[in-house]
Structures are given as structure tokens and as C-alpha cells.
Amino acid sequence: MAHALEITGLVKEYTSGQPVLKGIDLSVTGAGLTAIIGPSGTGKSTLLRCINRLIDPTQGSVVLRSNNGSVDMCLVRGRALRESRRRIGMVFQEYNLVERLTVMENLLTGRLGYVGAWAAWRRRFTPRDFERAFGLLATVGLADFVDQRADALSGGQRQRVGIARALMQEPDLLLADEPTSSLDPKTSAEIMALLREQGRAAQVPVLVNIHDVALARRYADRIVGMSGGKIVYDGDGEGLSDTMLKNIYGGQTWLS
């Protein structure tokens, strides 16, 4: 069974009567990178955070399906919510690594949903977790940084750790909220390539919020355009015409 995410009628109001998300319907199936573009403040981050319930949506459903079962993220609470979150990896704009922990400890954070507090305190994770961590560090090119503290790394290195941490969860779905916004163009491209590769390798969908339209065109299998809390475009990079971009971002001087 392929991994799938099905969002139906998703509404989020921070203040009553003023929805940020105005009924989002989006379904993502199988491996592949979906880029979500749109102007700042249009609810891209809110959408991503409603999927793993870092933010509670006001209405709608977010169903995650995989071999591990099917769950509506909007309905679960407490332990069930935490267990469902383990299935969704997330990469952040400002990396959000725990600065004072080592690279290895940051990776193990991805396994915190599977260990008790006493084991976590003593850093007693399973040998398989450590093996996987070493493997992922080699994959993202940071094998020599195991014992470095996260605050000693550069931006690109931190984001690689962030991606490795998300992959430690062995997720059914990978979310990335503006993963390249704080990085230089070269590193940004590398990070996007890494996200696409890893999504394909693990056969999971990857959802990426991104501001850089060119980068989205280059790496995404599918582009979703959001404007004013709604989805206004859904297709590939080719179909994303200037008229469409004008529609998404408004104005046109920036296009010429």
C-alpha cells in the first residue's frame, strides 16, 4: 500500500471568523516531492503544522495512510497523537536543532517517540537506532561530525542534521517548512536534492513549503500554489505560467 496523505476541507482560524486556511483539499500519494508555493502569510506554514498537529486545525480532516495503518490526525489526542506524530518527519526553516546537544543526540531526538524517559535520560537507544543514525550521517555527508555540538555547525550542515533527524523517525511522510530560506543558493539546491532523493529512497511523499519558484520548478514533481488561504494551482512546473504566478503572488513587476 502506497503512503498517502489526504487533506479534506481543512480550515484554520486563529481568530474566530478570520480563517487563514479557507478549506484546503489536497491529496498526495506515493513517493515524490510536492512543493507548496505562495506569498508570505498565506498559510503555508499553518497548513504543514496542521498536518502533524503542532497547530490544531479548526475544521476538516487530515488522513495519513500507510502500511502502519490509517489515522485522521485531526481526531487523535494524547498518546495516540504522539504515536501518529512519530510517522511524520519535519524539517524546519531555522533547522530547530537543540543547540547544546551533539549531532548524534539531535539525530536520536527522532527516536524519542519510541523510548521511555529513563532510557532517554541515559541516552539508552537501541543499537539499531545508533546504526541508523551513523548510516544517515554518512548519507548526508556528516559522518565526521557525530560528537560536534549542533551550535558549532554551519547553516547547511545544520539543515542536513535536521533532515537526518526527521529521517530517523522512519516517517511515512516528510514535511519541510521553508527548508532553504536561510541558506545560500548552492546549499539550497543541495538540500532540495537531498530531500527529493531521500523521499524517493524511503518511498514516502515529501511536502515542501518554498519561496523560490525556480527551485520548486527544478526539484518538485508537483507544485501546489496557495493564495489567500486557498489552493489556486495544482500541477507540474511546466504549467506554472507567468499568468498563474501573477495569480498566486499578485502584481507583475517582479516577473519581468
Binding site: N52, M90, F92, L97, L112, A117, R165, Q169
Partner: peptide
């Protein structure tokens, strides 16, 4: 940093 740990499904 706390948000990232919460997103992993940690208790």
C-alpha cells in the same frame, strides 16, 4: 527547539 522535539512524537 522544543517544537522540533514535539514534532518527533516525544512524550
Amino acid at each position: 527547539q522544543v517544537e522540533a522535539v514535539r514534532a518527533s512524537g516525544a512524550s
